[in-house]
Every structure is written in C-alpha cells, then in structure tokens.
Simulated assay, not measured.
Amino acid sequence: MGYTLDDKPYSRGELLVKTNQMFSGYINNPDETNAAITEDGFFRTGDIVELQTDQGSLPHIRVIDRKKNFFKLSQGQFVSPEYLQTIYIQSPFVEQIYIHGDLLSDSVSAVIVPSQQYAQAFALQHNLALLDMNNSHPLFHQAILEDLQTIAKKESLRKHEIPSHIIIDFQAFTPENGLLTSSMKPCRHKLATYYADQLKTSDLF
C-alpha cells in the first residue's frame, strides 16, 4: 500500500492495538473477525499512521490515512488518494482536488477545482480572455498539469502517482451538490459517478 516500517523520516503502516478489555470477535461471523483481528490478537484499526520519534521528545503517533480509502491500479500498485490529495493541494492552482484510479488504469487521474483568484491572475498574465468556466484554455490546462508534475518530483512520488488525466471544473465540491461530505471531505463514490464519463475520455498528457 506504499507504507512500510522502513519509510523515512518515520516508520509508517496500519495501527494495530491490543488491550485487556478488547472484544474477541464478531458473533457468528468468522470472516469479519478474521478481517478485524490478527492471529495474535491485535485489532486492525484501519488507520494508517506514522511513528514520529524526534530526538528529545517522546514518540507519538500521527494518523495520516485510512486503509479503506486505498485503490488498486492495473499493474497491482496500491494508491492512497487522500495522501496524494494532501500533496497536490499545495499547488496554487488547486482549490479542491479529487484523485481517482481503478483496475483499468496504470496511473491516477485528477479532478481539479481551480483557485478562482489564481485562474484570473493567470489569464491576465498570459493575455487570455476570461477563462471559460465550462471549457478551460489549453494553456491553463497544461500549466496545472506541469505544476502537479513539479510537486510530484519534489515529493519523490512514483510515476503511477502522477496524474496522466486531469479534468478542470470550476464548480466547487460542496455538501449541497453532494460532492463533499458533511465533514467537508470529498465524497469519493459520488465524485466517481458524477465525473465517470469525463474520467473515461479526458485528455491524456
């Protein structure tokens, strides 16, 4: 899944816990029990964490992802979309982002809601008319893609973690349109359905 105990600067992986008061399993459901509890009695929390062991301070755990949010690409690579989203949101072009992938793809795709302010500044800088909210200018499209590639290189991402397809949509993800959850996170299954046709036909760079 891309996380190992050998990761630098901190070891990363799924958090397993074991207590004296922990439940022993699900009643009459051995499959769920085996999925939730290891052979030596540890509960699989589903949280992906990193163990921070900075010198001079006590070790502590930081949750960085959820195991259930991983998806698998055609070559067998597991991808954490939430992890990639936290990286690519660094781009000044990006206001919101949804990372997509499936077993038919060998790399991820991205749906991007651009920063309105940055888009307007880009249009002025490059002598473009106001950017079409329904069909972004190819120069703007390419600039976003190149910025994502620059960030990916800086963060040492692998090739399949760099979007080969990008969709630009100026419509924000909101709870009202169902594309954000009530906790203000991308609603992945609704986003996948909403952009299904475009994800199949978006331009390959």
Results as ranks from 00 to 15, higher is better:
L124H: 08
N28F: 10
S202Y: 03
L15I: 07
S156C: 03
L84D: 03
I97D: 07
Q90E: 15
Q171C: 10
L139W: 04
I64M: 01
A121L: 09
F42P: 04
P92W: 02
D7M: 04
T174M: 04
K154R: 14
L15N: 07
F170D: 06
H141C: 01
N135I: 01
P59W: 06
I151N: 09
P92F: 05
V94D: 01
R158C: 04
S183A: 10
A152V: 11
T86L: 02
I162P: 00
K72R: 14
E39R: 13
N177C: 04
Q75N: 14
T201P: 03
F122D: 01
D31S: 10
S183T: 14
F140S: 03
T4Q: 08
L204C: 07
R44Q: 10
I166K: 07
G76P: 09
K68W: 03
S136L: 01
F70R: 08
D102G: 13
L128W: 05
P92N: 13
N134R: 09
K159Y: 08
K200N: 15
Q125R: 13
L51I: 11
S24P: 00
Q55S: 12
H126E: 11
I87N: 00
D169M: 02
A152T: 12
I99T: 02
I27Y: 13
H60R: 11
